[in-house]
C-alpha cells in the first residue's frame, strides 16, 4: 500500500488513511474498521507513513497526522 505516487501526490488509499486520521487520532484497529481495509494493509500503510513523517504515534498507540501529512493532504 504505497503512500505516494511518482509525482509526489498521495495515493487514493493514503488519502483515505490520512483524511480519516485528520478528523480524529485512532489506532490501526479502529482505522481498519472505519475505512473497511484489512488490518495488515493499514498497519503496513501506517508504518510507511510514519517513516515518511506523515503520521506520528501518540502515547496511547493512536496515530495522528503531522503538519507534513496535512500539507501533502491539501495538495
Amino acid at each position: 500500500m504505497a503512500c505516494v505516487n511518482g509525482d509526489g501526490t498521495l495515493t487514493q488509499s493514503a488519502k483515505s488513511v490520512l483524511s480519516s486520521l485528520d478528523n480524529k487520532p485512532m489506532s490501526a484497529e479502529q482505522l481498519s474498521q472505519l475505512i473497511s481495509v484489512p488490518l495488515f494493509k493499514v498497519r503496513s500503510s501506517l508504518r510507511d507513513m510514519k517513516s515518511m513523517g506523515l503520521v506520528k504515534m501518540t502515547n496511547d498507540e493512536h496515530y495522528e497526522v503531522t503538519e507534513g501529512g496535512r500539507k501533502l493532504l491539501s495538495r
Binding site: M1, A2, E29, P38, L39, F40, K41, R43, S44, S45, R47, D48
Partner: peptide, 13 residues
C-alpha cells in the same frame, strides 16, 4: 504487490 509487508502486520488474523 500490496507494498512492504511484515508477518507482524497480520498479528490477530
Amino acid at each position: 504487490t500490496h507494498g512492504t509487508l511484515q508477518l507482524e502486520d497480520f498479528k490477530g488474523s
